[in-house]
């Protein structure tokens, strides 16, 4: 569906994407995980065939976006990071006029609009103006809009950023259903739980480069331990105490507010910490996540 080799994007002197190779297959849910400014959105806009490639090769649905932009865009669904809805039109009109841009006949687009409003649970709001919708509803409407042309490939740029937890779960549920229907999903996110929930395969991006690639499980297995013991001491003590626990796990990370000890048995780590006479204010044992993978690979956390 997507094949990129040595893909780069520069804005003047600044290189947002510094040569990445990506291969996305039909029917999979593929993610770009990385912090803000990693080059995810720039990559997405190139894949959406709206932002010209600076160098490298990019094929989308087997075509070159520089040559066949309109034909490619006709088969894509795009849910941009910022909503581009017409806030003064009604919810339903937003779908109908958008469908017409694809050349879908009026009667067909009207049918699909009603179907999609049902799908994103906005059927009762069809006649409301968009400006009256909540953030989560607007996102769902944007997703409905991106499906109006029954795309082969759905691109979602930070689909749940800025939404409350409940709205995120509603959205994830809808995306999960699309995935089950066989729609190929490509999404960017800086939320590791979102990447774990939705993606079959993902790449971790940092500073315009891909630093790791695989399924969430592969990435966690390959770059982290099974468990993590989190130790919270008094403010300012973490740096100094790291040396006293570093032999307890495979690796120790010092964060401003806690120490992370990577080990396959977190409970064992906690027990030995206490044996050594150390008394953390709070302890927590958890499984490794993509957040830990990212920390391992870049030395930084995903969400600042």
């Amino acid at each position: 569906m997507i094949s990129a080799v040595g893909l780069r994007k520069a804005f003047g002197d600044f290189e947002a994407v510094r040569g990445i190779d990506v291969e996305v297959r039909r029917g999979e849910a593929f993610g770009f995980l990385g912090p803000n400014g990693a080059g995810k959105s720039s990559t997405m806009r190139m894949i959406a065939a709206v932002s010209p490639v600076t160098s490298g090769s990019l094929r989308i649905l087997g075509r070159d976006p520089a040559e066949d932009g309109p034909a490619i865009r006709a088969r894509l669904g795009v849910c941009p990071q910022e909503d581009t809805l017409d806030t003064e039109l009604t919810v339903r009109d937003n779908l109908v006029v958008y469908g017409r841009y694809f050349g879908i006949p009026r009667s067909e687009v009207a049918r699909r609009a009603d179907e999609l409003l049902e799908f994103v649970q906005l059927a009762e709001r069809g006649k409301a103006k968009v400006e009256s919708l909540s953030g989560g509803m607007k996102r769902r409407l944007t997703i409905a809009r991106s499906l109006i042309n029954r795309p082969d490939l759905l691109l979602l740029d930070e689909p749940t950023t800025g939404l409350d937890p409940q709205a995120r779960h509603v959205l994830w549920d809808r995306l999960f259903r699309l995935k089950q229907q066989g729609v190929t999903l490509v999404l960017t996110t800086h939320y590791m739980d979102e990447a774990e929930q939705l993606c079959d395969r993902l790449v971790v991006m940092d500073k315009g480069l891909i630093v790791a690639e695989g399924s969430p499980l592969e990435l966690i297995r390959g770059h982290s331990t099974r468990e993590v013991a989190e130790l919270r001491f008094g403010v300012g003590e973490h740096e100094a105490l790291a040396a006293k626990v570093e032999d307890l796990g495979e690796r120790v990370e010092v964060l401003p507010d806690r120490l992370l000890v990577y080990s396959d048995d977190g409970e064992e780590v906690i027990a030995r910490v206490h044996e050594r006479g150390l008394s953390p204010v709070a302890v927590l044992v958890r499984r490794s996540t993509l957040e830990d993978v990212f920390l391992r690979l870049t030395g930084r956390t995903l969400v600042d």
């Binding site: 959406a48 709206v50 932009g69 309109p70 034909a71 865009r73 006709a74 894509l76 795009v78 941009p80 910022e82 581009t84 809805l85 017409d86 806030t87 003064e88 958008y98 841009y101 694809f102 050349g103 809009r145 042309n149």
Partner: peptide, 14 residues
């Protein structure tokens, strides 16, 4: 502001 031109050009329209 509402950036609808970006939405329009995400379709076959240029």
């Amino acid at each position: 502001w509402n950036r609808i031109a970006f939405g329009m050009t995400a379709t076959p329209l240029g």
